[in-house]
């Protein structure tokens, strides 16, 4: 096959694929008008394209339904909303907080009415609860701190026991972290590996 032959044969091939540039197409059309060999090439290639395109198998009935049934709950779906909470829970909570904030602001002014007073009282109650909770937490941690200080400071054995406990807790924590997203991680890894190849 000479270079010229290869060139126009590739034009024929690209033309059948709709990939031939306009300038080359014009030249090919001229050639097809005048050259029997070019027309034969086009006929043969066209026949080849049809032959390949006809060689298709049908997709089994119900394939889509089976795929949909096989879909697991993906990792990214789990991250959306905590289980058991309706989707409107977060916006509702934010609206309540905003309403309480507004009530607090209005409640500080002279126009504070009866209804805003209720909001202010509610806010005060929540504020007190928060402060009490914080205080208890602080006290608890201080208590834990004193306890630990007592345990670690008094003997080497106590220190060793404490170190072992910390190590065990860490191992437990990491094993939980690894177990939870294993399935999702496998999917993601395989996808990532695929992209990288």
């Amino acid at each position: 096959m000479s270079t010229d032959n290869a060139t126009w044969k590739q034009w024929v091939d690209l033309d059948l694929e709709g990939e031939l540039e306009a300038a080359d197409k014009a030249r090919l059309d001229d050639l097809l008008d005048s050259d029997d060999e070019a027309r034969d090439e086009r006929r043969a290639l066209g026949s080849l394209h049809r032959m390949i395109d006809e060689d298709q198998i049908p997709v089994r009935a119900g394939f889509t339904a089976r795929v949909m049934e096989a879909l697991p709950r993906a990792w990214w779906e789990r991250a959306e909303t905590p289980a058991g909470l309706p989707k409107f829970a977060l916006p509702l909570a934010m609206m309540l907080i905003a309403a309480l904030g507004a009530a607090m602001l209005i409640g500080g002014s002279e126009e504070a009415g009866r209804f805003t007073g209720i909001g202010v009282a509610l806010f005060d109650f929540m504020q007190m609860t928060f402060l009490a909770g914080t205080g208890m937490l602080f006290a608890t941690w201080r208590g834990v701190g004193f306890g630990l200080q007592e345990m670690i400071g008094t003997s080497g054995t106590g220190l060793a026991v404490f170190a072992l406990m910390v190590l065990c807790l860490n191992l437990l924590f990491f094993s939980m972290l690894r177990r939870r997203p294993r399935a999702a991680a496998q999917t993601a890894e395989s996808g990532q590996a695929s992209e990288g190849r």
Binding site: I57, V59, R60, F63, R66, V67, A70, L71, P72, A74, W75, W76, A184, T187, A188, S190, G191, Q192
Partner: peptide, 18 residues
């Protein structure tokens, strides 16, 4: 071919966020 096509769709779905 059908079995692997199903696997591929499932795999793609799991990694759709990426």
């Amino acid at each position: 071919a059908h079995d692997l096509a199903q696997e591929v769709f499932v795999k793609i779905y799991g990694a759709l966020d990426r």
